[in-house]
Amino acid sequence: MSLPLPGTADDRAVGVLLGAACGDALGVPYEFGPPLPADRVPEMVGGGLGPYAPGEYSDDTQMAVCVAESLRDHDDPLAPEALAATARAFLRWRAEGATDIGNQTARVLGGAEHAWRSDDVARVMTEGAAELYASGVRSAGNGSLMRTGPLALAYLDDPWGLAAAARRYSDLTHGDPLAGEACVLWCEGVRHAVVDGDLAGVRAGLNLLPEDRRDAWSGWLGEAEERPPHAFGDNGFVVRALQAAWSAITHEPDGFTGALRAAVRAGNDTDTVAAIAGALLGARWGAGEIPGEYVSAVHGWPGYRAEGLAGLALAVTRRHG
């Protein structure tokens, strides 16, 4: 298939998954490195922790694909069978395709492996994540935020339904409410960008949070709008990851490429910050604004290239439109 016409809602919907994958692959070579100088142009040269081939995306997009395939195959993302399918997909990915996996996610998936074939696998996974958080284990990593973008494509006309789904899908592996709140904000940003073609949705998403959580997140967004992406160096933490991505986007407001490169230049968890940024940038600017060299190179587990990712994104929107 060819990509949709630039400037259309379909173009922006495809941009969600394709933008995340391109950000992921662009950030892979620089993962856990220092911030890059302002004049350094990141390239899809591969390497990184994999090592990865040039243009190959990592766990960020691999897990987003698991979510998107479940959304493609089920009418109600919050139905038990849809959540179970997603949980099983995560476990299959861990066993067959994970080129990298975060510590928090690895612990939760390992604890749920025995329930692979059970109808209760999503419940077991969620309870395991909640127990880790309750035990004092740090559980606000960026591993649920990085994969959350495709959910927006199933709720383009339903921000409150999207907020509920964002929390529920985050809870599969991350018991800390901070992780779910970050997913709510970013998903609403993505949804709004696909529908309206602007970036107002992230701040509008504050109204989807519990009232007593809005001021904290408004302050964190304000910090990101004032400071450069590399100021949020501890970006394995979900709040800092979101801030780094939002900083890159708000400081480079005029297109896809400059902001995506700024996200990579932030340093540390570069593939994840750039995948998070790429989902929103793709939703805002559309797949047609992604550089052709990125589109032609991007690929990864379980065998997707750009056209396959585009088809998957459109299949989600068609199912839930």
Rank of each mutant, 00 (worst) to 15 (best):
W301M: 03
P51M: 01
L209E: 07
T272A: 04
L312Q: 04
Y155V: 00
G278Q: 12
P34Q: 06
A266Y: 01
A53C: 00
E81Q: 15
G255N: 12
I249H: 05
P6N: 13
R123G: 04
V194A: 07
V273Q: 09
L109F: 09
E131A: 15
A165V: 01
L83S: 06
A266P: 13
N207E: 15
H299W: 07
G255Y: 08
W116P: 00
E226S: 15
D158R: 00
R94Y: 13
D212W: 13
G111C: 01
T99K: 14
T272Q: 02
L172D: 03
S296W: 04
G23A: 10
R261I: 00
A179S: 15
D73Q: 13
V108A: 03
G286Q: 12
R203F: 06
V316I: 14
G282M: 10
G201P: 01
A106L: 15
D100S: 14
G255A: 10
T99V: 12
R12Y: 08
E43A: 15
E31K: 05
E252I: 00
Y133S: 00
P291K: 11
N268G: 01
L242F: 03
D157Y: 02
T317D: 03
G180Y: 00
G15C: 10
A244H: 05
E307S: 13
G50D: 03
R107V: 03
H299M: 08
P291M: 11
C183F: 03
N142R: 04
N268W: 14
V316K: 08
G48P: 13
D24G: 09
G27A: 09
H299S: 14
L71W: 11
T272F: 02
G288Y: 12
Y52N: 12
E188F: 03
